[in-house]
Design a protein around this nucleic acid. Structure first.
Length: 549
RNA sequence: UGGGCUAUAGCCAAGAGGUUAAGGCAUCGGACUUUGACUCCGACAUCGAAGGUUCGAAUCCUUCUAGCCCAGCCA
């Protein structure tokens, strides 16, 4: 299942370009704007750009598209670098769009000198009004026919700070009647006095995306510039700028469909809102599908690669179910995670015929499917915890493979026990089960005279380590039904349980374990000397369906 | 309604005129099992619709239908 990458049309294009010698090596890039952190949707672009460059022996650039200082922040550039490094998509070169501000200015001058750009004095509202709308073409700006000399003088004055913010803009002179609104004399530069994280206060004019992006690509020699479908309408403009600014290298923009996940909060804007409103506990909240959230939840980066590769790069856009990612996570963890016992919702079991002062140390493998992981010591005594779900006073049906009164089950790696009696608290909740064990049934002894009614896991109460275990469910219900997210927050999306893990284990932060029969859990950074904190990474699959009767 | 796209199973997704329309996820059976896990077997589509071209079409043509994107001095 792993490494089954779907073919895609972009690979076809690259292979053709290589075969025809249009390029002898390809260069791709991932160009985030540092105004938030990366999420699973971005992972598609990051991983595919990275993999494509590797598969065809090319280079992969990480470039921060920092052309709008009022929205961007250096804390996001650091966060994004960290996320991408964690994903394992190592960039060959790191750039900033702001590194090219001077070159971009020079190229804008080329346009002005060719009479293909002009300084416009219209206000933002007037420009909007002149632009027309979807079915009405625009009308020319009264400043459209200024002389080249005047445009040169004015543009330079813009750059030198002679005008107030918003007073003037530089526009491309294309076609106000174009059915493609992007071609109706788009703005190239705006005046914006803001402190830039990289260039400080060197500039008071900043290039717009449509102008900056193609130049960035061309400057870096990007051969295949991948972006999402919404930019298809911008491609004619992209090509126009590359051509008319006379860039020596010509990149090709190719669009693919965005990755959307059903019932998950995706989209930087929405995630930022949840973070700012404290609906979640930060960008790395494990309920978020930000890369940092996935990391904190314990998702292996390669599971994300598998997921992205399985999806390919289609031009269609649909909602992928998160269960697909879950399966890749389990697949990646299966062989590598240590499998230990933990009880999330404990019930105490007292084994009445086991000596109260006795204490055994049993040996158990850490992963039956991967002997290389070795084994651990599991302790056993007359008091153990089992999972509340693993006991029902009366065996409900023949399918029930767990403990009930008068029924015998095996405590994995230990002994068969039979429940004999049970105590409840005032609410009718089981507090203690009294059981007896059969010492002939010790695991590893070869005993096979009878079969237990199932195998359940346990933790020795006398050596157990308390653990806070955080279970996560969907953050928002019916995310995609169009109603505002804040109305649909799932109050139970984070559940905190207090259980135990077996005593011989010393987990490290970010280490993932399989808690036998329960799922995969990862030690959270909130762990301290007082408590172990685990996040549920993903549960195990289960075909168990409680049947009435 | 101007322009640009998309449409293959419950969810993704290959397929680019010619074997029984890949594969994954999910689901449902069954085998195995000291994890109701894993593994293993088995089931699960005529390709948005209607016409047409062709010996032959998911693949070509026509006309529809549905959905997405575009009117920031955001990216």
């Amino acid at each position: 299942m792993i490494n089954m990458e779907n073919k895609n049309f972009i690979r076809t294009i690259i292979e053709q370009d290589l075969a025809s010698k249009k390029h002898d090596k390809i260069v791709t890039r991932f160009p985030p704007e540092p105004n938030g952190l990366m999420h699973l949707g971005h992972a598609r672009a990051i991983v595919m750009n990275y993999i494509l460059s590797k598969d065809y022996g090319g280079r992969f650039h990480l470039r921060f598209d920092d052309t709008n200082p009022v929205k961007e922040d250096t804390i996001f550039v650091e966060g994004i670098k960290k996320d991408i490094a964690w994903l394992g998509c190592h960039w060959d070169d790191l750039y900033y769009a702001s590194d090219y501000f001077d070159q971009m200015y020079q190229r804008a001058l080329v346009l002005v000198k060719k009479g293909m750009a002009y300084v416009c004095d219209l206000s933002a509202e007037e420009i909007k009004a002149h632009r027309g709308d979807l079915k009405t073409h625009g009308i020319d700006s009264p400043y459209r026919n200024r002389s080249i000399e005047e445009n040169l003088r004015l543009f330079e004055a813009m750059k030198n700070g002679a005008f107030a913010d918003g007073e003037k803009v530089l526009r491309a002179k294309i076609d106000m009647k174009s059915p493609n609104i992007n071609m109706r004399d788009p703005i190239i530069y705006r005046i914006q006095r803001a402190h830039h994280h990289n260039t400080q206060d060197d500039w008071c004019i900043y290039p717009m995306y449509d102008f900056a992006h193609p130049l960035e690509d061309a400057i870096e020699g990007i051969t295949h510039s991948l972006c999402s479908l919404e930019f298809e309408d911008h491609r004619p403009l992209y090509d126009w700028f590359v051509k008319h600014t006379e860039m020596p290298k010509v990149p090709r923009q190719i669009e693919f469909g965005k990755l959307k996940i059903a019932n998950q909060v995706i989209g930087k804007r929405l995630i930022r809102q949840l973070v700012d409103d404290h609906v979640v506990e930060g960008w790395d909240d494990p309920r978020l599908i930000t890369l940092s959230g996935l990391r904190r939840r314990g998702v292996p980066p390669l599971a994300i690669h598998d997921f992205v590769k399985a999806l390919g790069l289609p031009k269609s856009e649909g909602f992928t179910e998160i269960s697909m990612l879950d399966e890749f996570i389990r697949e990646r963890l299966k062989m590598n995670a240590k499998r230990i016992h933990a009880v999330i919702d404990p019930i105490k079991v007292i084994i009445t015929n086991y000596p109260a002062d006795k204490h055994e140390v049993l040996e158990a493998p850490l992963n039956r499917e991967n002997e290389a992981l070795g084994s651990r010591e599991l302790t056993f005594s007359n008091t153990v915890y089992i999972e509340r779900d693993d006991f029902l006073e009366n065996k409900p049906n023949k399918k029930w493979k767990r403990l009930s009164l008068g029924i015998e089950v095996r405590l994995m790696h230990a002994y068969f026990i039979k429940a004999n009696d049970v105590e409840y608290d005032e609410n009718g909740l089981v507090t203690t089960i009294y059981a007896t064990y059969d010492k002939e049934t010790k695991s590893g002894s070869g005993f096979n005279e009878r079969k237990p009614n199932g195998n359940i896991h346990f933790v020795d109460a006398k050596t157990a380590k308390p653990a806070e275990i955080r279970l996560y469910e969907d953050l928002v219900e019916n995310v995609d039904d169009g109603r505002p997210v804040e109305e649909k927050i799932n109050a139970d999306s984070k559940q905190v349980k207090y259980g135990f893990i077996e005593g011989g284990i010393n987990p490290e932060v970010e280490e993932t374990f399989q808690f036998t029969r329960l799922g995969y859990f990862t030690l959270d950074k909130d762990t301290d000397d007082q408590r172990l904190v685990f996040n549920r990474t993903v549960s195990l699959k289960s075909s168990f369906k409680p049947k009435n009767k």
